[in-house]
Simulated assay, not measured.
Amino acid sequence: MILASEIEREPEGALTTHAAPVVFIVDDDVSVRESLQALVHYAGLTAETYASARDFLRRPRAIVPNCLVLDVRLPDIDGLELQSHIASQRKEMPIIFITGYGDVPMTVQAMKAGAVEFLTKPFDDEILLGAIRSAIERSRAALSEAARMKVLEGRYASLSRREREVMALVVSGLLNKQWALSWVSAKSR
């Protein structure tokens, strides 16, 4: 039997939510990358920088709290395309867009697709750092939830066919007597 207290706590070996967070920065302008990296380091966080979306995509997936500070206009794959890819592959990675050439439709598209923030250059450092901290907390929560789900899936997979049938009746909200009668009558058919 799975206890609620076991589900709520973080599973053993899942240290990823306590690992040092990483801020990924993708911008084709070297001066922007360097200044953002310095700002992130000044805030006590680790930053990794990439000049293009393709460079970033070559990096193995980070299973630590993280976020992506992403320029909209990039030379190879634009930021909105990269966002679409990340949304399907890396759900634990919130995105903060930065751009010097933003417009309302672009902003709406990014936000509807799940961006945490959309900032126009030049932007206030504290606003960016606040967005980064918020994004990292979202990532931490998503990683923690994924770890809990993995534990539950493993436990479910360990159940026998009969135990799964009984569990389905129990979680349907029936009283013990009701699901027992339902299960027995189904077996007698």
Rank of each mutant, 00 (worst) to 15 (best):
T16N: 12
S182F: 09
Y101H: 15
I136Q: 06
M106D: 15
G102V: 15
V108Q: 12
V166E: 05
E163I: 08
S160M: 06
A131Y: 02
S88C: 13
V116Q: 07
F123W: 01
K91I: 14
A4K: 14
V104I: 15
D78F: 07
G79P: 05
S5E: 15
P75H: 09
N176S: 13
M111P: 12
E145V: 11
N66Y: 06
V26W: 00
T99N: 00
A19V: 09
A147K: 01
V23K: 03
A186V: 00
S158L: 06
A87H: 07
S182Y: 10
R90H: 01
K91E: 13
R61T: 01
H85D: 11
S144G: 11
T120M: 12
P94L: 04
V170N: 01
L129Y: 07
D28C: 00
P75L: 05
S188A: 12
D28F: 02
R133D: 10
T99L: 04
L159Y: 07
R164A: 03
G154K: 09
I86W: 00
F123M: 04
L119A: 03
L129K: 02
E163S: 02
V151K: 15
C67W: 04
S139E: 04
T120W: 00
D124H: 00
G173S: 01
A113I: 01
S172Y: 02
I127T: 07
G79K: 01
R155D: 08
A19F: 10
D55E: 05
I86V: 05
A19S: 14
S88V: 10
D71N: 14
H85T: 15
L39V: 09
L80A: 13
A142G: 10
T46V: 14
I77Q: 03
R59F: 03
M1T: 12
Y42C: 14
Q109L: 13
